Computed example of a mutant assay.
Amino acid sequence: MLLARVVEANLADQEFFIRKAIGWALREYGKTDPGWVAAFVAGHAAAMSPLSRREAVRHLAPAI
């Protein structure tokens, strides 16, 4: 999936707006496929910045 490849390629970037954009993109896709986003975040949690994680799961079920 293109989204996964793009996000994975930029996970190590230290730029604030890149981190924020990763979270925004994942959050928006979560409106279409929340299970995929939850699994992606869980699988990449160690590599993701707290900002990206927080933004990505903002509107997902509270159990995440």
Rank of each mutant, 00 (worst) to 15 (best):
A12K: 14
P34M: 08
M48A: 07
R27P: 00
L60T: 06
V7L: 04
S49C: 11
V37W: 06
A25R: 04
P50C: 08
G30K: 02
Y29M: 03
V6M: 09
E28W: 02
L51H: 04
K31E: 10
P50N: 14
I22T: 01
A56P: 04
V6P: 01
E8L: 14
H44P: 02
T32A: 13
V7N: 02
G35V: 02
E15F: 14
S52M: 07
L2K: 15
E15P: 03
V6E: 10
L26Q: 05
A39V: 02
V6Y: 10
P50D: 15
G35L: 06
R27L: 04
E8A: 11
A46N: 12
P50F: 08
A45G: 00
A9G: 08
L60C: 08
V6L: 13
P34H: 10
H44F: 10
M48Q: 06
H59F: 09
P34T: 09
L3T: 12
G43T: 03
L26G: 01
G43D: 04
V37A: 05
P50A: 12
R19N: 15
E55D: 11
A9W: 10
A9R: 15
A25N: 02
R58D: 11
T32S: 12
A39G: 07
G30H: 03
W36R: 09
I64D: 05
V41R: 00
A25H: 05
R54F: 11
F17S: 05
A21R: 13
R58F: 09
P34V: 10
V57H: 00
R5S: 12
R54K: 15
G30N: 06
I18P: 03
M48F: 05
G23Y: 02
M1T: 05
W36P: 02
I64Y: 12
F16A: 03
A21C: 07
A25P: 01
F17P: 01
A47V: 08
S49P: 06
F40W: 09
D33V: 07
I18Y: 06
T32N: 11
R5W: 08
L26I: 05
V37D: 07
K31V: 06
E15Q: 15
R27W: 01
L3K: 03
G35N: 07
L60E: 11
Q14N: 15
G30R: 02
W24K: 01
A25T: 11
F40I: 08
W24H: 00
I22D: 00
V7T: 03
R58Y: 11
N10E: 10
A47H: 07
P34K: 07
V6I: 15
A38G: 04
M1W: 04
R5C: 03
A61L: 13
S49I: 12
V41E: 02
A21S: 14
P34Q: 13
R53T: 10
G35R: 01
F40H: 03
A47R: 15
V41P: 01
H59T: 08
I22A: 00
M48H: 05
A25V: 14
E15C: 11
L60S: 06
A63E: 15
Q14A: 15
G23V: 03
M48N: 02
A63D: 15
A56I: 06
T32H: 12
V57Y: 00
D13G: 01
K20E: 11
A63H: 13
K31C: 00
